[in-house]
Simulated assay, not measured.
Amino acid sequence: MCLIWGATWIAIKVGVALVPPILFSGTRFVMAGALLLAYRWAAGHPITIQRQDCPRLTVATLFMVTLTYALLFWGALHVSSGLAAVIDLSFLPVALLAFAVALGEEQLHSRRLGALVLGISGLLLLFGPKAFVGQDSSTLELWGGAAIALSALIYAAGSVLARPLLRHYPSTLISGHTLLWGGALTTLAALAFEPGASDALPPRWNASAWASWLFLVLGGSIAAYTIYLKLVRDWGPSRAGAYCFVSPAIAVLLGMIVLNETVTPHEWAGMAIMLAAAWLAIRNAPAFVPERPMSQEME
């Protein structure tokens, strides 16, 4: 999961340089969700959710896909990429732990708090020098940072709210529904409000945009997002959120290999600290539980 999500940073960078970002994201989610549900239907597995669980699924979908990415992309337009990374990746693991404890999904332990402090310190060391480059403390910058922080809080709340669903339904089913319907709303919002979206529909994309989009559909959404939901179910939201301390390090290393970007000594140190934090966060995690057929789970 971390390897794939680390690589998506490069794919996103290529894609949003060619296609409006919210449209690019929304269409990716729609296709990923449709493919997951089509796979389940073709394999003879149920693709419906019981009526009493639909309200929770609706909230989780709005939180984890539509609202999160609308706020994240809007905020990223007004702050530097370094500052966006610091805000998003620092707020998210803290919010995951806070919501999980508040809603009774996890207990607070000193080791988890230590992992958060260590991981955020590594993030600041990795992205800190780039965070405020070119920033002018404008009102839009402040609102942009607030939007990114709010997106992290909303995503964390959605992750915790989705966990009870994951105890009763396969992760591929929940992943398919949240991606399909959340992506549909995101795409409609892009067409209605995003500048240039209506003139940048998929038939007009070039080969680079299609390649990036396809990797994000198959890897970032179908594979990694489904794995994340499995980890939320088995490990709990805060342990699953340890990817925030691993994926950035992978992204930096891939940028060095693929894009010939340079890595400074303090960035190496930041990545080492973040990986140590992730190890501390997932140490002694519960065993991964294979999913049973849905009929058995509902019994």
Rank of each mutant, 00 (worst) to 15 (best):
A115P: 04
G183V: 09
V217N: 08
G6R: 00
A269W: 06
P203G: 08
D234Q: 05
G33P: 05
L118M: 15
S151T: 05
I148F: 00
L35C: 08
S159D: 05
F288H: 13
A211S: 15
A84V: 07
L23G: 10
A189P: 05
A211W: 11
R204P: 02
T68C: 11
F99C: 12
E106L: 03
I273N: 06
E106K: 00
Y155K: 08
W41V: 10
L35Y: 07
G114S: 11
S221L: 08
E194Y: 12
L124V: 15
L165W: 03
M294N: 07
F63M: 14
A249K: 03
K230S: 14
S198C: 12
M31Q: 04
L103M: 15
A43S: 14
L216Y: 02
S238R: 05
I154R: 10
L103E: 09
L166A: 03
Y39D: 06
F215A: 00
L92E: 11
S221D: 04
I273C: 01
A70H: 08
S247I: 07
D234K: 03
V263R: 07
L67P: 01
I282M: 09
W279A: 15
R28A: 07
T139K: 10
S238H: 05
Y225W: 12
A11H: 03
G6Y: 00
W235N: 03
L218C: 13
S171W: 10
H45R: 15
P293V: 08
V94H: 02
N206D: 15
Y225A: 02
M271K: 00
P265W: 06
G119L: 01
L62I: 10
Y39G: 03
Y155W: 14
A70I: 15
I257E: 08
Y228G: 03
P164V: 02
R167P: 04
G158P: 03
T27F: 13
G44F: 09
